[in-house]
Design a binder for these strands. Structure first.
Lengths: 259, 259
DNA sequence: CCTCTCTAGTTGTCTGACAACTTTGCGCAT
DNA sequence: ATGCGCAAAGTTGTCAGACAACTAGAGAGG
């Protein structure tokens, strides 16, 4: 554990030390249960106060990587990245984050593509009348917004939340909420005035109705396909090229490296 | 913000306060950018020292919910659950966690089912020779373990990691790593001595080879189906009933509430 | 060899201080 | 009346010392 890089404008000593500790746990592949150096030792190694060490450790505890016990010490609980999942850039609300690179937005969309089409499939199998009513209520609000040219981002969110709820899987519901709200801004252009004028809102609503119809019919495969179509449509409406999701472009380019 | 509940044995004031603040941010639906009360005000409200408040805030910063700026204050950065994703119980390395409820293990497996079958589909489309070599290397190690009755959990993990890498989507790779390593213990029984004797290890390896063959052939649908079959097989080997994933049991039971 | 006690070590919390940064308000000039 | 500059007040970041509460380990005695 060498010198700590000096904190950048938005950074602080505890942030840097938390990263250094995570890196060290990862590189050493420390098993859960492994004891970490004591606070006193870490203060000496990093040349900082106990308050800074404690804040760094607090972050690792929040990440689920470390667990402490009064009188006993601090122990590895999980490897970094294995106890909590965060999106890079596209979802990271960093203070200095510029518009995330297009590629990462694309990757997150692809993740949604997998998750939401899978969720639609399960929803078609498990949906109840109550679920369907909830979806219809959200659709009705979007229909009204279409007629009046109003914003319907919340109803759009609610529709997808209702689909996730119909899977009866709380883990999937929370993952959906995590993924979906990350990009609820991505729905804003659809329901904006230009979105209405360009027909994007109408197209999105058609796709929603197709998802609903397949789920109501209990047709898992159709629900999956409709959700996939919707995510491809949503990506297109944001200027992303979803054809990448089916293309062999990567494969061809990478294969060229192995003639 | 009422009184803080006294910390339980494994709890501490900063944990309780972090939870209270998250709950408050969620309930109030505070928009990102909203300023939180100052450290001094929080000390007064909660009746604790500044160190405790700072540790609680450090946890919220690690979760991505809050961002602070020296001289300026603390601000909401994202609603709790929207900046990082964690599994409950099944993946939570809580110190007092008993065996997680069977249902939650099931839900996590179902999540993996969605993710890993989707990953296999993309991998089949995008895999390179290098990817295939990496998968073959892991398969070879598992073949050797089969012959000798040895443990092959690491090779098993490596195979799934290689499949995820073949998707060329770092977000998906990390999600896969997050989901998969959560349950790498779930692979241990397969490669244990009883696992070898019962034929579970052999069955798992046959499933791996089917996934590989479909990916090598570039057959996306076959890869998806093979991965789905594998996850169903893995669930069965752990005593979970994966038929739930296709059953309409939930739907029927819940529909009965709405005669 | 086992049990109990004591000591040393560890984390949790408190208090006070000061540095560094930001915000706000006031005074002065135009 | 408005704008600019400066100072004061307020905020977070870091430090240091203290003490409580808990745990682990060692030693002594039975």
């Amino acid at each position: 554990m060498g010198a700590i890089e000096r904190p950048q404008h938005t950074d602080r000593l505890s942030d840097a030390i938390a990263r250094r500790l995570e890196l060290w746990i990862s590189e050493q592949k420390l098993e859960p249960g492994t004891q970490l150096p004591t606070e006193k030792v870490l203060c000496e190694r990093f040349g900082v106060s106990r308050a800074v060490i404690r804040e760094a450790i607090a972050r690792l505890k929040a990440d689920g990587c470390v667990r402490t016990r009064q009188g006993s010490g601090a122990f590895v609980a999980a490897l970094p990245g294995h106890a909590s999942f965060r999106l890079t850039a596209a979802g990271d609300p960093g203070p200095q984050a510029d518009e995330p690179p297009q590629r990462e937005v694309f990757e997150v969309f692809e993740l949604r593509y997998l998750i939401e089409s899978g969720a639609a499939e399960l929803a078609a199998q498990r949906r109840t009348e109550a679920d369907l009513m909830r979806m219809r209520a959200a659709l009705a609000l979007m229909d009204q917004a279409l007629a009046s040219g109003a914003d319907a981002v919340m109803a759009d969110d609610e529709f997808h939340v209702a689909v996730a709820a119909a899977t009866r899987n709380p883990q999937l519901e929370r993952l959906q909420a995590f993924m979906g709200r990350q990009l609820s801004e991505s729905r804003a252009p659809t329901w904006s005035a230009p979105g209405h004028r360009s027909g994007r809102a109408r197209q999105a609503q058609l796709e929603h109705q197709q998802i609903y119809a397949a789920i109501a019919a209990g047709d898992a495969e159709a629900a999956r396909d409709a959700a996939a179509t919707h995510l491809i449509g949503a990506a297109s409406r944001l200027g992303l090229d979803p054809m990448h999701w089916r293309a062999t472009e990567f494969r061809r380019r990478d294969d060229e490296h192995h003639p």
